Computed example of a mutant assay.
Amino acid sequence: MQSLLFSTSSTFIILLLSFWRLDASEKRLLLTDPDVVQSLQNELHALRSKVQQLESSQNNAVSENAALKSKLTRLEDELANLRHNGVPAVSSYIIWGRKTCPQVNGTMLLYSGLIAGKIYSEKGSGVNTLCLPHDPDPAPSDFPISIHGGYFSNIWGAEYQFNYRQIAIDDDPPCAVCQVQRSTTIMIPAKRNCPAGWVKDYTGMLLGAWDHEYASDYICLDENPEFFEGTRSHNDDGRTLYPVRARCGSLPCPPYVNNHYISCVVCSQ
């Protein structure tokens, strides 16, 4: 901006000197000539306007920068306050064999359902066990009923394949999806207690597929399992549930014991 003012002043001085150096034989330009004065005034006014615009732009830039810095500081303070006060984190887990969630502080039932998965005799379909809700929504209305080639996957309900406490073989098992006000949940096989600092949500027994069936995942059945009333006389198989035993060899014994069943615990923190 200073260079611009210097350039403007220099131009004005040179213009004045040029007036004085006019040859005497030529028509003199007098500074009192109204046209000359008006021309110079117009030029000075234009230069002043340009200088003011530059100063205004600079001030606006400074103001905008200050506003952005203020907003950044405010957001950083809000984030620090949230971290200090602690935003409650949540996670979820499935309790297998129960219709409701455990009575643990900060635990809420998201939905209850029925255990389902692949039938024991199928190679394909999903390997993982699911907790299907009691009120399913239909597939999109435009989804084709007939699939090209006739290839599809299946999902079946589940059945207990052992007697234990209040359940019997072929009973249909329930499940429940639970939300906890803790950020992490984990199922630990072969344990009945949680690590220090963790909350015990429930303990139980590890279940899987029979070793002569096609594979499925391992799940932790609550130690006080329930069943759906009216299912005791039905033998539909589907996703069959068996207790899991330890087999020594590559699994060290001790500490494990050959053919002993494996416990489990679900913990959160």
Results as ranks from 00 to 15, higher is better:
residue 134 H to N: 09
residue 178 C to Y: 01
residue 130 L to E: 06
residue 151 Y to P: 01
residue 42 N to H: 12
residue 126 G to F: 09
residue 66 A to I: 00
residue 72 L to K: 14
residue 45 H to A: 15
residue 252 P to Y: 04
residue 182 R to S: 13
residue 82 L to D: 11
residue 3 S to V: 04
residue 12 F to R: 13
residue 92 S to N: 10
residue 215 A to H: 11
residue 206 L to F: 00
residue 52 Q to L: 07
residue 154 N to E: 09
residue 209 A to Y: 05
residue 141 S to Q: 14
residue 38 Q to D: 07
residue 187 M to I: 13
residue 16 L to W: 01
residue 133 P to Q: 05
residue 88 P to H: 02
residue 113 G to C: 01
residue 258 N to S: 08
residue 92 S to P: 02
residue 142 D to A: 09
residue 41 Q to K: 14
residue 86 G to T: 05
residue 226 E to S: 08
residue 97 G to K: 09
residue 131 C to P: 06
residue 132 L to Y: 12
residue 117 G to M: 00
residue 197 G to T: 01
residue 225 P to Q: 00
residue 175 C to Y: 11
residue 134 H to I: 10
residue 62 V to G: 05
residue 125 S to V: 02
residue 226 E to V: 03
residue 23 D to V: 01
residue 27 K to R: 06
residue 243 P to T: 14
residue 19 F to Q: 15
residue 26 E to R: 13
residue 13 I to A: 10
residue 190 A to F: 01
residue 24 A to M: 03
residue 215 A to D: 15
residue 212 H to T: 07
residue 117 G to R: 09
residue 261 Y to N: 07
residue 166 Q to C: 04
residue 229 E to R: 09
residue 24 A to W: 11
residue 185 T to S: 11
residue 131 C to V: 02
residue 180 V to A: 03
residue 86 G to M: 07
residue 101 C to W: 03
residue 183 S to R: 13
residue 202 Y to H: 05
residue 107 T to P: 00
residue 254 P to A: 05
residue 256 Y to F: 10
residue 217 D to C: 12
residue 126 G to Q: 12
residue 112 S to M: 02
residue 48 R to W: 05
residue 110 L to T: 14
residue 163 N to L: 00
residue 179 Q to I: 03
residue 76 E to V: 07
residue 130 L to I: 05
residue 163 N to C: 07
residue 49 S to M: 13
residue 54 L to Y: 03
residue 97 G to D: 07
residue 51 V to M: 14
residue 248 C to F: 04
residue 8 T to G: 05
residue 172 D to I: 10
residue 4 L to A: 10
residue 156 W to Q: 06
residue 86 G to H: 08
residue 147 I to G: 00
residue 62 V to Y: 07
residue 236 D to C: 08
residue 168 A to Y: 03
residue 53 Q to E: 11
residue 52 Q to A: 10
residue 35 D to N: 10
residue 44 L to N: 10
residue 165 R to G: 02
residue 24 A to P: 09
residue 70 S to Q: 15
residue 205 M to I: 07
residue 222 D to S: 12
residue 51 V to C: 09
residue 172 D to G: 02
residue 199 V to T: 12
residue 59 N to M: 10
residue 162 F to N: 08
